[in-house]
Design a protein around this nucleic acid. Structure first.
Lengths: 235, 235
DNA sequence: TGCACCGATTAACAAATGTCAATGCCGACC
DNA sequence: GGTCGGCATTGACATTTGTTAATCGGTGCA
């Protein structure tokens, strides 16, 4: 269920500045043998499966994607959530297999990058090499922050912190697209669906947030954090 | 409480093969302006504090170190545990401040590497550059595994998995040095000290492990995993 | 030897979180 | 408009985990 890939017009792509190819023209890329394909997938589409042979990395142009690891008994853990500008699947540069499953949360537009070509390009262009390493570093920082969230905070705190951060990508006070189901929230935060549901209801009852359709509105994130993190854990 | 640093004899260091300088002689390093100092610290010594200006990276030659993040309310989370051969503090190559506090769990021998010099060296020597990036990648992989442990497993499973992995660095069935207190186990696994204590006692009662002084003995890690992960989470 | 301290253990209880089951809600599709 | 299916909500209850406090046990030191 994937639209037929077209050669991408990277030059005019809205997110070129954030891309690992910032500074390169489409001609540059073509000359270097780096073809970039536009891909577009609907919500719930799986881009790749944990353990699959890794062939492509992706740049997320529009939409949202989850990276999931699944235990032998079926429990799932969302390891990372990806947004506009994020690069993923690039563990394929070091491992032969993908380390997570990548699943679209919304209709999603991506650039698909052949890993072999990307590897070669990165060897020739220090700027690309550095950009990729920077992504690695960022992912590590983020992962370590998640470890603290999961290991040292309780459910209210985790949820409040997460929701606040989700909204932080948008102007304060705006209603924000929020495509996650309660189950996905649970799989991200290490909580049961029902518990997430109860906490959300509680937050709403207290006027800390409202929801309609897939829009989340947090009037004042400070209030939310303050309520949930009474102990000062999220200062 | 740090022994006076000496210029290190990298050439004969027992762990040169695993180091980011593998393949370089001490002369090479000196010619390149990379001085490496031997450091030795006692248990509980703090090498640096989260938020400190980052000046050095360290290679762990002998002993064990914990990397800790502390919340505003005092709760602590051990983010990573370091062993023989591990490199740490190198977030200083990308950030001006250390992202964790580094504390020795045992008497520990290290090589101290000046970050400015390391940065310069890494720019000149692809092998060093690559080695550092590989470490980054490894740290990310490990961090994502921890996310799954903390988010998708219960207390028994976390503890059993951790203990098994701790022992996996040694020949199966051997008694292994185990310098962690119950509190540290808790701070690593996201559990209270008392709960860890109870679980350890339970494991002992069932003959799954024994302890004396700072030695941990797990006769059969498979048994331990099997008991704790009845649901199949750790298969 | 005896004391003081620190970590580990244990018990009793409280709180947080998960599980199971029933119901409600809403949108897709006929 | 009606029905079906998926997700969300809620309640009752079970289980897990945390908390508090008391005790134990060893170790270093006076």
């Amino acid at each position: 269920m994937t639209t037929h890939p077209r050669i991408s017009d990277c030059l005019h792509c809205a997110m070129r500045d954030r891309s690992i190819f910032a500074g390169l023209s489409l001609d540059d890329l073509r000359d270097l043998g780096m073809e970039v394909h536009d891909i577009s997938v609907p919500a719930t589409d799986m881009l790749y499966l944990e353990g699959d042979r890794a062939r492509y990395a992706y740049t997320l142009r529009e939409g949202a994607v989850k990276l999931v690891k699944t235990l032998a008994n079926g429990r799932a853990q969302i390891v990372r959530l990806l947004h506009h500008g994020d690069l993923f699947g690039f563990e394929g540069l070091r491992e032969t297999a993908y380390q997570h499953s990548a699943i679209a949360l919304t209709r999603t537009d991506l650039c698909r990058l052949d890993l072999v070509a990307l590897e070669a390009l990165s060897r020739r262009l220090p700027s690309v090499h550095d950009a990729i390493n920077q992504r690695w570093f960022n992912a590590l920082q983020q992962a370590e922050t998640r470890i603290v969230e999961l290991g040292a905070k309780n459910a209210d705190e985790r949820l409040a912190t997460f929701l606040s951060q989700w909204c932080s990508a948008y102007p304060a006070g705006d209603a924000v697209p929020f495509p996650l189901t309660r189950q996905e929230l649970g799989e991200f935060l290490g909580l049961s669906t029902e518990h997430v549901s109860r906490l959300m209801a509680e937050f709403k009852r207290r006027g800390l947030l409202t929801e309609r359709k897939n829009l989340l509105h947090i009037p004042d994130t400070r209030q939310l954090i303050l309520h949930a993190c009474a102990s000062g854990a999220c200062a």
